[in-house]
């Protein structure tokens, strides 16, 4: 297996998603609240992962723009669960050595008097390994 296929396998196994089920209706992207901020949209994650075109996704800021709101999962008529694919790609990025998006040093600048702990723990879960 070449590197491209290995990466595809890895993302599919980790996410538990079968991107082949996607019928390219675009409903996920239509409902996505982060649509305008994303270079690649949820339906593109499904099709690009299926075709093994994953490097551009890895290099894109889109993995950090996803709000993990699960609207795309809920509203996909084919049960594809695009949010899980996006998360699997994000993990491929932040699991690399030194690739954490956020460190403890960033925290003081993030918080104000009212910041709930939930925001900090969630940010660490999403951006840091």
């Amino acid at each position: 297996m070449n590197k491209k296929d290995l990466l595809r396998e890895e993302i599919i196994r980790r996410s538990g998603v079968n991107p082949k089920k996607c019928m390219k209706c675009g409903k996920c992207s239509g409902t996505c609240p982060a649509y305008e901020e994303m270079e690649f949209h949820p339906h593109q994650f499904a099709s690009m992962i299926d075709s093994g075109d994953i490097e551009p996704l890895i290099a894109s800021e889109s993995v950090y723009k996803c709000l993990s709101c699960f609207a795309c999962v809920e509203r996909c008529p084919r049960g594809v669960e695009p949010a899980k694919l996006i998360e699997a790609v994000r993990l491929s990025v932040i699991r690399e050595k030194g690739a954490n998006r956020m460190t403890a040093n960033d925290v003081p600048a993030m918080v104000d008097e009212e910041t709930p702990q939930q925001l900090l723990v969630s940010a660490f879960r999403k951006y840091t390994k």
Binding site: R14, E81, K84, E87, V121, S122
Partner: peptide, 16 residues
């Protein structure tokens, strides 16, 4: 202990 705030959907995440 803290739940971590986000459920990581990936199947290979155990410790969290």
């Amino acid at each position: 202990q803290c739940c971590g705030g986000v459920f990581t959907t990936s199947k290979d995440e155990i410790a969290t």
